[in-house]
Amino acid sequence: MASISSPDTARQNTARRGLYARLSIGQKRTLWAWTFLAVPILFYVVIRFYPTGNAMVLSLQEWNLLGDRSWVGLENYRTLFSDPVFWQVFRNTFVYLLLGTPISLVISFIIAYHLDKVRFMHGTIRALYFVPFMTSAVAMAWVWRWFYQDVPIGLFNNWLATFGISQIDFLDSTTNALPSILAPAIWAGLGFQIIIFMAGLRAIPRTFYEAAEIDGVSTWTVLWEITLPLLRPTIVFIVVLSSIGFLRIFDHVFNMTTANPGGPLNSTKPLVLMIYQTAFSSFDMGYAAAQTVVLFTILLIVSLIQLRLLRDR
């Protein structure tokens, strides 16, 4: 009897000790791994994925924050794509990207390349380039806004007036305003890019340069054949980061044009500012969500292309 009942008891014991005891070691490891992973996953689901999903649903609805949401189908997207302001804003966003990224890349590389060779006050000079990156974008934008004013208060126009040159409308012009706003935005990001470039330059083994020196090739060839190819991962990294940064430009534009956000005549308005205005001054949440989905798609496409380039390496 005892011998017959013993497997039963064993089974009961197992059942009592729960499912956990029946798992193999490998399964247990997986379980623990998932338990720990669950924390960041939960965090991401709650603060990232849920709002993202919600925004996508909201883009198909109409909502003014006060009342109930009502379904409108693709109406928000239809309005968006037939809105000439959206296409203007779309164009501006890409002008920020297509001017900002290459210009900041070239300038930061040139500075990093030469700074790498400077020994005199190296730390101080590097710090000077890094200071704008640490400064609050809002404060910086307001200072530049003051620089750009007309006589009698604007710094640049006062210089021009001193030399008898006629004033330039920096911000009050549909053609000059965007580059005027882009300039401090580029300047603000330079410090970070210079530091990354310098780290990249330091990581290139000296032996390549020594070999090149023995072969007696020109500085230009060294730059073109050794430095730049070996810097490729660094360059891709900076391009991805700065592209996302310029596609999401907001603080500089908003603070330099607060009275007439994105003006004059929408000539400086980026997509993020349009979203902000639609959501928090017109309280048209569904329409703003549709714009957000479009921005999300653009960022996704740009990032995928750039990651693809990174993989080719």
Binding site: S173, T174, G263, P264, L265, Q277, S281, S282
Partner: peptide, 20 residues
Amino acid sequence: ADESAQRQVLVDMIERVQLQ
């Protein structure tokens, strides 16, 4: 109906004449 949007209409009206 939307004060900032309606203000923007008049801001743009003047700028179209003065800047364009």
